[in-house]
Write a protein that binds this DNA or RNA. Structure first.
Lengths: 219, 219
DNA sequence: CTTTTTTTGTACCATTTCGCATTAAATCCC
DNA sequence: GGGATTTAATGCGAAATGGTACAAAAAAAG
């Protein structure tokens, strides 16, 4: 979820401004908008249950245009997933800049995640979890992306706890890896329960309990 | 995952023994075996990505027979899911009979879960999670089953911790609900990471860390 | 204005999918 | 053996699906 040192390349580079005058017929769509709409649809039903017709309808692009712009369904799914991760990353990075203690940082982290998981008319959960839980995980490329997703989240939590130790909020005897794993597990739990329809109030209880357990065990 | 008092109705009642001499042409399949094969296939690809032809092939039944025996694809999915839960319940119930301390009980619980999640040539993860993460969760009946699944697991862990308190292994000041939620979250995490292909050794580390955190914080 | 380039939109194709109607087979009851 | 009953097997059909060919359209370049 966060890189070691360098600021990551946020979303796609904004080459939109003053486009270099393309040659042929102008596009009737904005690629990044279309990807966002495709992502929303994939997040609803997953890979297999989302048809190209559905995607064509929601993006307003007809199938040949979809194909020409993004490639086949699999390629579009991967692009959608990368978009999801980029959006997620941008939001989480905010939390790392703030000068706050571990409890507040975790609270904001989980809140941000819930905000994403509860997106849309109905809660969608985490797209990474959806991907793993589908047949898409059989694809090596997608599997690789998912692995990076796991590692980023674990690393992000690891950074949180190491920072807390440096700030003297936790003893340096705590098991950072174990704490990070528990925080990640909480994220999974929130994602799954959110998508299943568990009301926000219950999810907030889980967040509180997790923070208390993870931070409280250190004093 | 476990009922309050009564022994739950294990799998399907064994009405197989000395069947009451059916009238017409005998079945060429055993319904419970076919459900098991269907479950295995659904666990691989999920609802949408699993076709009736696939199910027909794996069960050895042709489509009309499948349809006549179990109803449409949705009905077959629900029956498969119930089978999954029944199998899970049977295994977990064993753990509750044993006279062991909380650490050992949790360890066996997680081990049993991993055994299920790692089923097959490739790890399959938890079928409940797969169901939630798919479009199947839009179905009210399926959603109801999933909710019961959540509640059963939470209750099972709750029973574990309350028993530990009674046995004097934990102070009665611990937040049983929060601990149960963390244990459930660990289960989700194991399910997702297992299906994504995380090797067993890493999963065992997560189990150890979770037990240490959940039990260790009480002393 | 003509050519070139790029995208759009219509139509099409091969395959898959779900479901069912119909016929053939196997067993029991009389 | 003859009829009744239940299941198996073949195959049809309508719809959906992923993907593509091809011509029309819209813009820049010459």
């Amino acid at each position: 979820m966060v890189q070691k040192k360098k600021e990551p390349g946020v979303v796609a580079k904004p080459e939109v401004s003053t486009e270099p005058k393309r040659r042929g017929r102008p596009r009737a769509y904005a690629p990044d908008v279309a990807i966002g709409q495709a992502l929303a649809l994939f997040r609803k039903g997953g890979f297999a249950a989302t048809s190209l017709d559905d995607l064509s309808e929601v993006t307003g692009m007809n199938r040949p245009s979809l194909y020409g712009a993004f490639g086949d369904k699999r390629a579009l799914y991967i692009k959608s997933y990368q978009r999801y991760r980029d959006d997620y990353t941008v939001k989480v990075l905010e939390i790392f800049k703030a000068d706050i203690d571990i409890r507040e940082r975790l609270r904001r982290f989980f809140d941000t995640a819930l905000e994403i998981y509860l997106t849309g008319e109905e809660p969608r959960g985490c797209f990474t979890v959806m991907t793993v839980a589908s047949d898409a995980i059989a694809d090596p490329d997608i599997r690789e992306l998912v692995y990076r997703g796991f590692a980023d989240v674990d690393d992000a939590f690891g950074w949180c706890f190491r920072t807390a130790i440096k700030r003297g909020e936790m003893p340096d005897t705590v098991d950072v890896v174990a704490l990070s794993q528990m925080a990640s597990a909480t994220l999974f739990s929130l994602s799954i329960r959110a998508r299943a329809g568990v009301p926000r109030a219950e999810l907030d209880v889980i967040v509180k309990g997790a923070i208390a357990l993870v931070c409280g065990s250190t004093r």
